[in-house]
Design a protein around this nucleic acid. Structure first.
Lengths: 334, 334
DNA sequence: CTGAAAGCGCTAACAG
DNA sequence: CTGTTAGCGCTTTCAG
C-alpha cells in the first residue's frame, strides 16, 4: 500500500520512461515476438519502477475482446469444479487467456443471470458448469460449452463431460465383481445423477439383479445422501452395498451406515463419484469414480478455442472416460 | 445462442430504439432516481429487445472505476470462504458493487500475483483472504482489507477477522467444562491457527493443565489433522479430547481416532473450527466454533466502503466474536 | 521498430 | 430530462 501519489501511470508514461514508443510497450505487454531483448528489458524495468498495471478495461474496449473465459459454477461446496478450473487454466493460460468465475448466487440483481455478468465483461467464451436455464443463454453470442452432463440442451453449445453412464456402470460392476448382489443406489437431481443411475440400472438388470434406488428431498447434498441411504437400509436390511451419485452424498450415506450400526466396508460397501478431496479423507478412504475433471476442463477449453477460430464448427459432444479409484470403502460381502 | 447477426448493440442503439437520449439510458442503467416510469420502461424494453449488455470495459474506462471489489482466496477446498463471500456480497450488491474472485493458483504468469490481476481490472477495493505476500500489495493503491488473522501485516490495510484467540478459548473451555483434563490440540501453519493455539494454551495453563500440541507436515489440511492426531494419541493414550484448528483437520483427527479404535464422542471428544458444511455432516456431527464469516465479510465490506469514502480513515482491526456450535462430537469423558 | 491517427462504448459535466 | 462535448487507456492500422 504505497504509491498513492498522483494518478495511475499509463502506457505513455511507461513508453517515455523506457525511452521507447507507445507501440513497443503494447507489443511487450502482449508478449509479441521480434522485440529486441534490450528494449524489452527497458520496458519491463519501467513497468516495475512505475508500478504500472495495464488497464484491462482499455484493452478490452480497444481490442473488442477481453482474452478472458468465463465459467459459471453452481455451488462452491461441491468440489468437483476445482479440477475443472485447473484443467481450463492449464490449457488457456499459456495462450494468454484468463479464467473468470461467476456463481449463480452472486451478483444477482445486478445482472439477471451470471452469464449476463460475463457477457458484460465481454468474455471471449463461456463455460457453463451448472444446470443451464433458458434465460441464461438467451443472449450468448460467444462460443459456449456446457461442462458436465445436464438436463437441458443449450443450442449451439458443445458439451464436454465425463461419461456418467459408463461411470455408473464401472461402479456397479465393481460391486458386483466383489460379490455383492443386494446393491442400492443413492441418486439426486440433475442430468449427471440421472445418467449415473442409468448406468447402475443397466448393469443391475443385465446381471439379473434388482436395482434399488432412493433419492433425497433436495439435490445432491450430504443430507440427501443420508436420508436416501437411511431409506434404502430400512427398506432392505440385507443390502450389502451402496453406490452414491457423488462423494458428498456418499459422506451422507456413510453417516447413515454408522447410525444403523453398519461398518464400512465390513458390513456395507460404499462407493462414491467424483474423487473429490473428501474421498481421500482418512475417515472415509472412499472408493470412487474419477470423472477426470481436469481432462474435462482441458476438453472444454479445446472446444472453445476451436469455435473461436471457426464459429461454424459443428456442435459436438466430447465424453471423457471415467475411471475407478480403489480405496478402502468397498470389499467382498461377509 | 442466437443473435449472431451483426455487431453488438451499444448505448446509442438502445437510446434510439427507446426514443430517448443516450444520457437517459445511462441513468436507467445505473438505477438513478428521478427517471419517469414510462421512460424507464421504454428503455428496459429496448434493452430486452436488443439483447443489450452494457460494456463493463467502457464503463470502467470512462468512469475510472469498476464498481467491483476483488477478493483473493487461498484454496477452494477449505470452505470457510463461502460465508465470507456471501457476507461481502450481501453488503455490497445493494450498493451496485460486484464481487470478483481471484485465487492464487490461477492466472499466474499473466499477472505476477492475483492482486495484480485485480488491479488491472481496476477494482475499487481488495479483500485479501489468504496469507499476504510482500509483492502482493506492493502496488495496491485502492482500499484493502485483510480478512482473517494472518502472519503478515499489510501496511494501510484494515483487518477484519473473527477473534481466533477467543475461539480457541471457547473450544478449550467447552472441553474442560465437560470434565476433560487430558486435552490435545491439532494445529497448523498460519496466523489463524497460531492464535487458536494461543487461546488453547492460555486456557489450559490457566486451568493448571498441560497443553499438548501437535502439528502436521503440511498446512491445515485433512492429512495434517490425521497425522497430528495420530501422534497425539500415540504420545498420550490417556487423551480424552482433541481440539482441531479447523473442521478439515478435525475430519483428519476423526480418521485417526477411528483408526485407533476410539469412538467419538464415547472414547474421545472432538471439536473443530469454522462451522463449515463438513461439520454438519451426519458422519461427524462436529461440535465446532463458528467464526461467523458472514459477519466478517460484512465487516470487510464496511471497512472498504469507509476507506473509499475517506482514504485517510485510520487503519483499524475489527474482531468478530466467534461462538460455540454444539453438536454430537463432544461429551463428558468416560 | 516508430509515430500518428482513429476509435472502442461508456461516464461526467454542463448548458439548455 | 435532453444533447453535446470530452475524454478514459488502450489496440489497430498504416506509412515511414
Amino acid at each position: 500500500m504505497t504509491q498513492e501519489i498522483g494518478k495511475r501511470p499509463n502506457i505513455y508514461d511507461v513508453a517515455s520512461a523506457a525511452g521507447v514508443s507507445k507501440s513497443l510497450v503494447s507489443l511487450v505487454l502482449r508478449g509479441a515476438p521480434g522485440v529486441s531483448p534490450a528494449r524489452r528489458a527497458a520496458v519491463e524495468e519501467a513497468i516495475e519502477r512505475l508500478n504500472y498495471r495495464p488497464s484491462r478495461a482499455a484493452a478490452t474496449l480497444a481490442g473488442n475482446r477481453s482474452r478472458t473465459i468465463g465459467v459459471v459454477l453452481d455451488d462452491y461446496r461441491n468440489l468437483w469444479f476445482v479440477d475443472l478450473l485447473a484443467g481450463l487454466h492449464d490449457r488457456l493460460a499459456p495462450l494468454g487467456f484468463r479464467v473468470a468465475v461467476a456463481d449463480p448466487s452472486f451478483n444477482a440483481h445486478l445482472d439477471r443471470t451470471p452469464v449476463d455478468g460475463l457477457l458484460s465483461m465481454r468474455v471471449d467464451g463461456v463455460v457453463i458448469a451448472t444446470e443451464p436455464t433458458e434465460e441464461m443463454f438467451a443472449a450468448v453470442d460467444v462460443p459456449a460449452v456446457v461442462a458436465g452432463n445436464r438436463d437441458m440442451v443449450v443450442p449451439g453449445a458443445d458439451i464436454v463431460a465425463n461419461d456418467d453412464v459408463m461411470g455408473g456402470r464401472l461402479a456397479t460392476e465393481h460391486l458386483i465383481g466383489l460379490g455383492h448382489r443386494e446393491i442400492g443406489h443413492v441418486t439426486g437431481a440433475g442430468g449427471a445423477a440421472r445418467l449415473r443411475a442409468q448406468g447402475f440400472d443397466a448393469v443391475m438388470r443385465g446381471g439379473g439383479l434388482r436395482p434399488q434406488v432412493a433419492q433425497g428431498q433436495g439435490l445432491t447434498m450430504e443430507s440427501d445422501g443420508y436420508e436416501a441411504a437411511l431409506r434404502l437400509l430400512e427398506e432392505n436390511p440385507s443390502l450389502t452395498a451402496i453406490f452414491a451419485a457423488n462423494d458428498t452424498m456418499a459422506l451422507g450415506a456413510a453417516g447413515a451406515a454408522r447410525d444403523r450400526g453398519r461398518r464400512i466396508p465390513e458390513d456395507l460397501s460404499l462407493i462414491g463419484y467424483d474423487n473429490s478431496p473428501l474421498a481421500s479423507a482418512n475417515l472415509l478412504r472412499l472408493t470412487t469414480i474419477d470423472g477426470r475433471n481436469r481432462q474435462v476442463g482441458d476438453g472444454a477449453a479445446e472446444a472453445l478455442l476451436e469455435r473461436m477460430k471457426d464459429p461454424a464448427t459443428p456442435v459436438h459432444t466430447k465424453l471423457v472416460e471415467p475411471e475407478l479409484v480403489l480405496r478402502a470403502s468397498t470389499a467382498a460381502p461377509a
